[in-house]
Structures are given as C-alpha cells and as structure tokens.
Design a protein around this nucleic acid. Structure first.
Length: 865
RNA sequence: AGCCGAGUAGCCCAACGGAUAAAGGCGACUGUUUUAGAAACAGUUUGAUGGGGGUUCGAAUCCCUCCUCGGUUACCA
C-alpha cells in the first residue's frame, strides 16, 4: 500500500496518501455515535479569484493537527470546509465581463478545493457547503423569516454610503479612510430604505455572554467596547420661554449636574428648529447645512477643532434653576443617546475644549480626593471620581454617592431617571446587489395585509410579526408579507444586467418578470404578473423585495449546517445538534473579532430562544492565528510582489514541509515573516527523518532493531518528547513541539541502534504535523492500518527522571558549583555535599549562614551574613 | 489620544521566579565527501534579555517608569 520511494519524494508520497484517505473515507465524520465528539471549525474562506493565500492554511493546519491528535485519542472528529461565496468581487467581475457570478464563483471554488485538498487535511468533504447554493441559502432565508416573525427585522430610511463609481451602497466596514475598500472610490451619504436587524435588543445578552467564553481577551474587549454599554441617567431640562418643550439628555455623570454651563443639541435634533431665536437663525441654519454636508468621517477627522453655534435659547438646570445657553455642535451625535447633552467643561475633555474655544463658563464641581492629591489643586478638566463641591446639599459627598442621590432625587420629581445606553446600533442588513440571498418578502398594500392578518387559515399568518413592517413611498403604503417556508428557497433570478439601477436599487429591481407577481394570500404561492392572473380567489398583485442580504448572513450560521448538511426538512436535526453542538474549537483571523463573531452570536442567541440550538453561545473556544508577512516583513500584496503561492511551495517542498514550516515559524498567534530558507530547514528535517528510517536501498534502516528494551537515554528522551509534544498540542504551541521532534531526530542520528517501538512512537508524534510522510513510514514499518487511528502514546513519568540529579550550589544567589546527587536528597545531605566540595565550601565555611534556600532536586542556595 | 500585546545572538524563536541566559531552526565559517557545485554529515561562530529604577537569597520572567514596534478604537456624553 505504501509507495516504493527510496528517497523521500513528497510528490509521490503525498498524492498517494491523499488518494488513500479519500477512497477509504478516513475522515468521514459519523453522526450516529457513542464516541465522544470533537468539532473543529475553520473560518471558511471567500473563494477569491486570486486563489488560496499562504495565510489560509496556517489556521487550517493548526485545527488539523488538533483533529489528528483527537482522532488518535479516540474522538469522533468533525472537521468540515465550505465556501462563503456571495460577495462583491464576483459581481463586479460580472459587471465587467458579463460572466454570471455563479460561474466565476464555482470556478474559484474548484480551484480553492483543489488547493486545500493538497494539504491533506482531515476534512470530511462530504459535508462541504456553499452559501450560494439554494439548498443552503434556503435556510438563511428561513432564519430571516424567524427574525421577521419575532419583530427583529424592520425597514427604515437610513443614511448609507453610496459609491457613485460602484453604483452601490457600502456598509461602514467596507469603507476605509473615506473611500470604498475595493477600488478606493469616493463615497457619499444617501438616504435609502433598508432592512435593519434589531441586534440592540440582544445587547445585554451579547455583553454578558462574553464572560464564559474561552476567547482571546483582546477580542472580548473589542466586542465589549463595540457594544459600549454605559450606565447613567436621562435628565429633563425645561427650556426658558418654551413651556411645552423639554430637552432630554443622557449623561453618565449626574453628579456633575451643578457644573453644567451650557447645553448642546446635535444639528439634526428636532428641537433646534423650534427653539432657535430669530436673531440666531441665519447662523444656525448655515451651521446645520454645513454639518449635513459633512460625513461622520469628516467630523472625526476634524475632531481637534470643535465647532458650534449658539441658538439664543436657554435651558433651566433642574437642580438649581440656573439659565444655561443651548448650543448646537456636531460633536454631539444624533444617533447616540438622546442626541443632546449637558456640557460640563470642568469634568469632560470635549466640553472643556469647546468651552475654551467659545469662552463659556467652566464651573468645577468635583475635587480630587485628599488621598489622591499631592498638594496641587485639581487640574481641569478632571473626569475622575472625587468629592463634590459647589453642589448645594450634595457638597462634600463622594461623587459616586452623589450620582445615586441626585438620580433618585430627579426620579422623585419626575425630572430624570437612571438609564442605560449602548454604542451598538441596529444592523443594516440589506444590500443593493445581485449576488446575495434574496429576501423571502413581498410587498402588498394595507388592505391585503389585513386580509392575511385577519385570516385563520393563511399560511402566511403564522410568520407575521406582532406589528407590521411597512414603509411609505410617494404617498403609498407598503406592507411586508413573508413567503411561507414551503416556498423556500426563493431563488435568485437570471438577470440581463448585473449593473445596479443607478438609483440605489439592486439589479433585481429591473427584472419586472420576477419583481411583479401575483401572490396567493392563502398559500403563499406566487406567479409572475406578466402571466395571466390566476382566476381563483385570494390572488393579489404584489412586488418582491429587491434588496439582497449582506455577505455576513451566510456565515452567521454555517457551523450548524456542517453538522447536518443534507437535511432538506430542517436546518439541523435536533439529535444531531445535540451531538455535534457547537464547535469545540474555532480558528480564524482577528479581523473578524467584532462583526462576524458578533453577528453570528446574535443569530445563535435568537436560534437558542427558538430552541433550535441547545447552547446559548456558538463558539466556546476561539483562537486567532497571526498574519504571515512577506519575506520583506510587510503584508503580502500583489503590488509589492511579495506574495508566496502555496501551489509553488507544495510543488517544491511538499505539503508536509509547508504545514510543518507554518507551524514552526513561531507562536500561532504571532505575526511573522515568511522565509524561504526557513522552509528548507524543515524540509531538511523531514529528509533526515526519512533517512533515519529508510536506508539508501529503500529498506528499513539497519539500526532499527526488533527488541523490547530501549537504551536508557533514548527512552528518557522519547518519554520527554511524548510529554512535550502532547502538552504543546493541547496548548497550541506547535513551534515548540516541532523543536522537540528535531531534538529527537538529532539524537537518532547519534545512536547505533534504536528499537522499532521507539521509532513508531516517534512517527506517531510527527503524524499530526506531517501526516503524509508519517502514514508512509508507519506502513513501511509494518503497520497495516492507517496511523490516524493508532492510539496516542502516553509517557511514563518514571522514565522522565533518572536516579540522580544535578544540584546547583549557590552562595548568595551566585553559582559556585554543582554536583550529581541522588534524587530527592534532603537539604542537610545536600549541604554536607557542598561542604565536601572545596571550591564551594571556601565561599561559606568561615561565614555565618543566615539562611538556606533549598529547592529539591534543583538548587541549594546558602545566604551568608 | 485611549486600550491591548510584544521587544532575548546577524535573523525567526525557546526558557516565563531557580544553573554560568538561550533549546530548535535559519544564516555565516571550517572540515569530510565531490571534477566542481549542490545535497548530506561533523564541527565552529556571535551575547550579559529595549533603557532606567524597584521587589527578591535569586529577575529575561514580578512591579513602576520611559522608549520602540504591532493590533484596535476613534468626539458614544
């Protein structure tokens, strides 16, 4: 079964074993089981036209090593792969060339699959999924319907990024430095009707859920900051001369209420128009216009230079009835909190800056505590906690205490209440593109909507949200009706052109045959309106939704589908879900720290509420592999010409060498540069391993003998290696496990004989890292079945230590000599030994021994006076 | 600007409170082999852990401070 190579020929060995694994279905993951399971998940790739990047296999190799290690430990392993294949590049290519995005996508997938297969991963290819496959996105649509039904999906006019060049809307994350991420075209703001998902309803759970996750701390922190929970109070200010208007603000520091010297409204705030004094109107209007022209990006770029104008109006401070001027300024955002703030320049950096610029009063009301102070007066702005001053009856209180008291007092008088705000915004969920999942939604008029709502038998009825989703356009009202489950998937139609309409609508909008339909309100059946209207009852005219879902949609739940990819009845079978559940290990780039991982958690929590999944969180253990840089130490890019192509590397050195090298470069999470000489090093190591086992005639090396007892030093090193490699695998420290195997191989070169048992264990330790050569050598050594299932070796602690140990003698912490002594020698005997060695004894024999520090089997440190 | 992480031989890295700091790999050099080169093998090579201070019998490891480099967030009241 093995090849007949004499020398190490990776180009023969690797395809041979890949074919073997494929034929034998070695890595088939069986769902019917009594064995413990292990589910390793790689962030699935977007199959780009550029082919696999050298960074992709870094994570895949890491998870593969764990999978092989788990297989050897008796686990039933699931290691799947698939394609996150919707997305803009295929669509842009389609616009350029007229090639259907599907065609490009499938070509790219074929190429990616070929490239990934060349690594010999433990992937169960029978479970491959593709987000653009209607059998897959049927369930993406189905999940959307559940969100819709729960009232978590709504439509809203949203200012979105419009790119005139790409003729499409871009999400915030697709914009870098005020330009489109792809193509770097300029972008501008536009208001458009959009689908939005109410992720904010889950803000608290998304925050709390983080606590129990085994994730990199930085990623947890990023998510926490993104959710941005802040606790404080909403306070109502009266407006002087406007008895019917109130100004609501949010603050985290109600304890500074006595220090408020001005108020700020966001330029877009509805109050602005109402309260601005006639004399100020001109300036205010000009300012609003100017602010509207600025994007959020511009506003932040000009962060250092705050601007604003006075409205001429005054608010009344509820705690002391002082009149305070109301300004408008664009450093206050309409989209956060109430879009209005109370400004406390003495205790807020931004307000301080603004007050200085416009000569507004600065009134300190918090003083540093005595204990914090080193004689100096509190420097402004001071945003810490301290003792309240100039605050009437609250003066002298700790600011923390005052905060609570003031809030309680406001609550009593109905002028405020404690409140919580989040930075997290609802998720803009629609794109005006072709290459995405169509929404299973049709738009009807109010009358038809009510028919469904009032029906007892309509199949659409049980998917309706409590309150209808609707929008107005040109005086008409449109109501959203869901397509019933049995009419999914709603398949993407063929279109004439992939170009957006240019009006901010998806190319689907021009497909009248598809958009304009007759809908059966009872059954949810649809037919094109270009055909004759069906004669029976319940058929009405309706229009399909023409937006498509964003690329995040398909990746929000793919880990579930891998468990049960062929299920045509359900998203996932409950029994299967119970068995494979959530992945035990998830690896992928840190660039997804917030968006993908947050969106997926949100969907998962919704599915948990629907009892479709049995655990509240999808990814219990997460790891980010580091980026592999080019040889010049900078990020690989075509323009720099420092891109390494995995195909070339495999052709020259083989997949085992590439796997080994990527793991050997350094800690998995670190960013590290590629070096060609580095891969030659591990290639040399594999050749050395081969040579130590297979001689120059292709037979087993003569030094490998079939006896039971191993030489003590070899045996000790072997057990050390088992221990080290096992622990390193558990902790994802592959670089050091390889180092240990190199030490062992170097030792092999030096010995005259070694037992076959030792060699087999060594090959087993190597197998997860370099599976092809290991499988080959395993069989050459006389084994009949795949090394994948050979039981993982265990080390014997007794073999790790010899009977004698070297004790280090120190005088006052300085090395003065050492001695080989019996293991577990006690302190007194060790001290006697030190006295008997003259060059050590001379350092302390005349002196008073103040203290002795004895670390058993390691060190005896004598501290003298 | 804030937060997080990292600074160890020419280079990538190991050691994470205990030896006289450094395993493994790369590179360089010498030798063996070779017509030569490559490969392989044997051997050699360089230094006081970014700077300063502290804790300790003992610090690369813990603490403080500064510097440098990455990641991340950008007026969220």
């Amino acid at each position: 079964m093995a090849t007949n190579c004499i020398e190490y020929e990776h180009s023969k060995v690797e395809p041979h074993w890949q074919a073997f694994w494929e034929k034998e279905k070695t890595f088939h993951a069986d769902s019917s089981l009594d064995k413990p399971k292990f589910y390793a998940l790689d962030m699935f790739p977007y199959p780009s036209g550029a082919g696999l990047h050298i960074g992709h296999p870094e994570g895949y190799t890491a998870s593969d090593i764990i999978c092989r290690y788990k297989l050897a430990n008796g686990f039933n392993v699931l290691h799947p792969m698939g394609w996150d294949a919707f997305g803009l590049p295929a669509e842009q290519y389609a616009i350029k060339t007229g090639t259907h995005p599907k065609e490009t996508t499938y070509e790219n997938i074929d190429n990616f699959r070929r490239q990934i297969k060349a690594f010999g991963f433990t992937i169960d290819w029978d479970r491959e999924i593709n987000t653009t496959d209607p059998n897959y996105y049927r369930w993406t649509q189905w999940i959307f319907l559940q969100l819709f039904k729960k009232g978590l999906a709504y439509v809203d006019e949203r200012p979105v990024w419009w790119c005139p060049e790409l003729k499409t809307i871009l999400a915030n994350e697709e914009i870098v430095d005020g330009k489109s991420e792809r193509g770097e075209h300029p972008v501008e703001r536009r208001n458009l009707r959009q689908w939005v998902l109410k992720i904010t309803a889950y803000a608290d759970r998304l925050l709390d859920g983080l606590d129990d996750l085994d994730w990199p701390n930085s990623t947890k922190t990023q998510q926490k900051n993104w959710i941005g929970k802040s606790e404080g109070a909403e306070v109502t200010f009266d407006i002087d001369g406007f008895p019917n208007e109130k100004m609501e603000i949010f603050t985290t520091r109600p304890d500074t209420l006595f220090g408020v010297t001005y108020m700020v409204l966001a330029p877009e705030h509805p109050l602005v128009k109402k309260i601005t004094k006639y004399a100020n109107q001109k300036l205010v209007a000009a300012y609003i216009k100017q602010a509207a022209g600025k994007s959020d990006m511009d506003r932040t770029e000009l962060a250092k230079d705050k601007t604003g104008v006075f409205t001429g109006a005054y608010a009344i401070n509820p705690v002391n009835n002082k009149k305070i001027p109301i300004w408008i300024a664009d450093y206050v955002l309409i989209s956060y909190g109430t879009g209005a703030i109370m400004a406390v320049p003495a205790h807020d950096e931004r307000d301080f800056e603004f007050a200085q610029k416009y000569n507004l009063q600065i009134q300190p009301v918090i003083e540093k505590k005595q204990s914090d102070e080193n004689g100096s007066a509190t420097k402004l702005p001071f945003s810490g906690v301290g003792v309240m001053i100039h605050s009437n009856e609250y003066t002298g209180l700790d600011s923390d205490v005052g905060r609570k008291k003031i809030t309680e007092e406001l609550e009593k008088t109905g002028r405020g209440k404690s409140a919580v705000n989040f930075k997290l915004r609802d998720w803009l969920f629609s794109r005006q593109r072709y290459w995405g999942e169509p929404f299973p939604i049709v738009w009807v008029n109010k009358e038809d909507y009510l028919k469904v709502n009032d029906s007892k038998t309509s199949k659409l009825k049980n998917l309706l949200p409590e309150s209808p989703v609707c929008y107005r356009n040109d005086g008409n009202e449109f109501y959203a009706l869901p397509l019933p489950e049995e009419h999914l998937p709603l398949v993407l139609p063929e279109v004439e052109s992939y170009l957006p309409t240019g009006f901010g609508e998806s190319p689907l909008a021009t497909e009248k045959n598809w958009v304009e339909i007759y809908l059966n309100l009872e059954t949810g059946e649809t037919v094109s309106a270009s055909t004759e209207k069906p004669v029976k009852e319940n058929w009405i005219r309706a229009n399909r939704e023409t937006n498509t879902m964003p690329q995040w949609a398909g990746s929000c739940w793919y880990y579930l589908r891998y468990c049960d990819p062929g299920n045509s009845e359900k998203l996932i079978d409950p029994e299967v879900e119970k068995y494979w559940g959530m992945p035990d290990f998830y690896i992928g780039g840190a660039e997804h720290a917030v968006l993908h991982l947050l969106y997926a958690r949100f969907w998962h929590q919704v599915l948990f509420d629907l009892k479709i999944v049995s655990h509240p969180e999808p990814f219990k253990k997460l790891f980010h592999q580091g980026i592999i840089l080019g040889e010049d130490g900078v990020k690989m890019s075509k323009s720099r010409g420092n891109v390494i192509n995995p195909d070339d590397v495999i052709a020259e050195y083989g997949a085992d060498s590439l796997r080994l090298y990527e793991m050997f470069m350094g800690p998995l999470e670190d960013m590290k540069p590629w070096t060609t000489t580095g891969i030659e090093g591990v290639y040399r190591f594999l050749k050395k391993v081969w040579r130590e086992i297979i001689d120059s005639e292709g037979k087993i090396n003569e030094k490998i003998i079939c006896v039971e007892n191993e030489k003590p030093d070899t045996e000790k090193l072997l057990h050390e290696s088992i221990k080290k490699v096992t622990e390193d695998f558990e902790n994802l420290r592959f670089n050091t496990s390889i180092s240990q195997l190199m030490i062992f191989a170097n030792h092999l070169q030096k010995v005259d004989t070694v037992t076959i048992g030792t060699i087999k264990i060594f090959v087993q330790l190597l197998n997860p890292l370099a599976p092809h050569i290991s499988e080959e050598l395993w069989e050459r050594l006389g084994e009949k079945s795949s090394i994948s299932f050979a039981e993982w070796p265990t080390f014997d602690p007794k073999k790790l230590v010899s009977d004698e140990v070297k004790i280090i003698f120190q005088i006052n912490g300085k090395y003065r000599g050492d001695a080989i002594l019996a293991k577990n020698i006690d302190q007194d005997s060790a001290l006697d030994a030190a006295r008997n060695i003259e060059r050590i004894a001379k350092h302390f024999e005349d002196k008073i021994i103040k203290k002795i520090i004895f670390v058993p089997n390691k060190i005896l440190n004598i501290v003298t006076g």
